[in-house]
Write a protein that binds this DNA or RNA. Structure first.
Lengths: 170, 170
DNA sequence: AAGCAACTATACCCTCGACAATATTCCACG
DNA sequence: CGTGGAATATTGTCGAGGGTATAGTTGCTT
């Protein structure tokens, strides 16, 4: 073919983004594992804890975690076996069932969270002075609003997910 | 526990980054699949094509793709079965074997690449005006240099990987 | 020159997640 | 009121990928 197509600035740009993601992911995963949580399990725990009554329907959980419904079933199976969450039947709709965080699940998350925040600060937000960080976040936000499937685009901050609405919000 | 710990700016920051990554990944994967390539396969193909003589030792390939050696074996198996690459014995070191891109592999990559670049531009680099993009990339670079396991930190651009050195460069 | 240490690649087993199919429940429409 | 279609959750099956153990090869040390 030709002399490096791969020097294209677009390639290096995504390479950069993906490397940062990979690096952070690896460190996060290691820290979570110290607390007996996989990244998905951590994600599930945070999503549930963000939600009213620490619970969410299986489908909504799937929507918020970019996990398939069967994937959610499997994860919830594991976490229920480990006592971090339990299933609860939905009174109004007998097809649905809730996944609700147990006290043990909350405790586990509390154990994990401080270290997680520290990690973020150490390897991400703390690496830049405030103006540079803001510039970075502004750029990310703009790209996010464009690329994300269910970008609400108007809101300023939600970042990790629209909100904890009770039903399908995507 | 307490009123949202999750409004913490650090959480929203990583949420932003991860959402962007997820969004881009999904679109890239879809486009690659149109050409019969999985993301890993695309990655392997680009890494090999970046390298002299379109080949790389299995181990080096593993190092450059953050894939385990067994994972590389699997991927190479599949891609060899599909005719995209072939294994070639290494003359100088009879322990090693090379994975080398076939003409069909090159063709496949050529088919896939333009669309890929277009996607990057549409959903990432084209979403920001040049100053904002540069600010974003500068920030990412800085974080990358800190967080990436084998950050050379001195070089300006390599982004996606040190270089195509022949031996272990990590 | 020979044995030992280091390195490379693969085989086997495990976990994880997606897709397709299934059973149950809800809703809309005739 | 009943029937067909949509939605919800679960299960079976499959592929992907990592970890460990194993076998083969090379290089170093003595």
């Amino acid at each position: 073919m030709n002399p490096n197509v791969f020097d294209d600035s677009r390639i290096t740009a995504v390479g950069l983004l993906f490397e940062v993601h990979a690096g952070l992911s690896a460190r996060f995963a290691a820290q979570m594992e110290e607390h007996g949580l996989s990244p998905v399990e951590f994600e599930v725990l945070t999503r549930l804890t963000r939600s009213p009554d620490n619970q969410l329907r299986m489908t909504d959980l799937a929507a918020q975690t970019s996990l398939s419904t069967s994937g959610v079933t499997r994860v919830v199976d594991r976490m229920e076996r480990d006592g971090l969450i339990v299933r609860r039947a939905c009174a109004s709709d007998r097809r649905s069932s809730f996944a609700v965080v147990t006290p043990a699940g909350l405790r586990r998350l509390d154990e994990c969270l401080p270290g997680h925040l520290q990690l973020i600060e150490d390897w991400f937000t703390g690496q830049l002075d405030p103006p540079a960080l803001n510039a970075l976040l502004d750029g990310l936000r703009q790209v996010r609003d464009a690329v994300h499937p269910c970008a609400t685009a108007g809101s300023g901050d939600p970042a990790t997910g629209p909100e904890n609405a009770k039903s399908t919000d995507c």
